[in-house]
Design a protein around this nucleic acid. Structure first.
Lengths: 187, 187
DNA sequence: ACCTGAACACCGTTCAAGT
DNA sequence: ACCTGAACACCGTTCAAGT
């Protein structure tokens, strides 16, 4: 009954995946650990901070190596990894998007996207706007996807169709970027 | 002390704008109307339903006539109107995006965008994916914008710069759409 | 039709005190 | 360093009863 911060985060991820974000309360998590809710405040400043750690843990677990060499290939890899990471846990997109929106964590993907676009020759402004536009697409699309998946008990029906919708939406933004990257540099 | 549903919605919008979404509780709203919180359940099934009505009210107040004749001009008008509508009230983007995400309301913009894209000759799939990608962009961008605006007490500093970032992000998606609309039909 | 009053089953957070 | 126990100040929602 003596925990480290990382123990608490891991248990929080389990509770999230098993019972959903609405059930991930400080009181519930405390009970799950056999500890008073107030004990959690020894490890975390508040619930937001705990949630940020949960979001970062989810992203860390979904990490995989980059293989693409082109900027648009890298963009696709980052966006797909982000989507898959969030889909791997119940309410994952809700947690990650919320934490990002609050500016408390989950900033890795947008930073990597910004870097990829900058390396591709985008101006600072285009890299900033482009990476955030990509992120908004991934968050919004994945959230809707996950909501629908969890609503239908049998959500795995047309998984390929969903995946291709993601690719189509992604291509929309990437095509827009390509037109403007091409106008700036030639690689 | 005898209210209609519309009275409650209007007061809710006032409370939202004055004190923020976190303060828009059933108890607070009841107190503001000089009524028990339980009285609100005569007008609304639950808080979610009330929030949906608030979101739809915000969108209705921001409505303005269409002037563009081209599909991309119409897309820009719908997206700008949506952004401006949400920015007009404190936490407006939070309320509208949440209600939309829960599927309880705020569906007008995405329906109009889908129609515009279909009329432009997009396939059903492209119209569906494209309109939702646009919506995700507008929600995500405006939410970040509004959060930043409300954090800086003097958020009006570089309003033109923010507006042009919105236009740039929007152009990214519209350019991607144009490439695919053009591939399908010639207008 | 619209509202009251009281209750139920919860929240996040703080803080003095323990080991 | 990590946790207890008790409290504070809240939530959304239900429901019998009132007018």
């Amino acid at each position: 009954m003596r925990y480290h911060r990382s123990d608490v985060v891991e248990r929080a991820v389990e509770v999230l995946d098993a019972y959903g974000l609405a059930s991930l309360t400080m009181r519930r998590l405390g009970a799950e650990l056999g500890v008073q809710p107030s004990a959690l405040y020894h490890h975390f400043l508040n619930k937001q901070t705990l949630l940020a750690a949960v979001a970062d843990e989810i992203l860390a677990r979904g990490r995989r190596p980059r293989t693409a060499s082109s900027w648009d290939g890298l963009v696709a890899e980052v966006c797909r990894e982000l989507r898959d990471s969030m889909l791997a846990y119940r309410d994952g997109s809700d947690v990650v998007a919320t934490v990002y929106a609050f500016g408390l964590g989950a900033a890795g993907p947008v930073e990597e996207l910004t870097e990829v676009l900058a390396d591709a020759g985008c101006s600072d402004e285009l890299a900033a706007v482009g990476s955030r536009t990509l992120l908004h697409f991934v968050f919004g699309h994945t959230y809707e996807e996950q909501t629908a998946l969890q609503a239908n008990s049998v959500g795995a029906i047309d998984l390929p169709a969903r995946s291709s919708q993601f690719d189509l939406g992604l291509a929309l933004v990437v095509d827009g970027l390509r037109a403007r990257v091409g106008a700036t540099v030639r690689v």
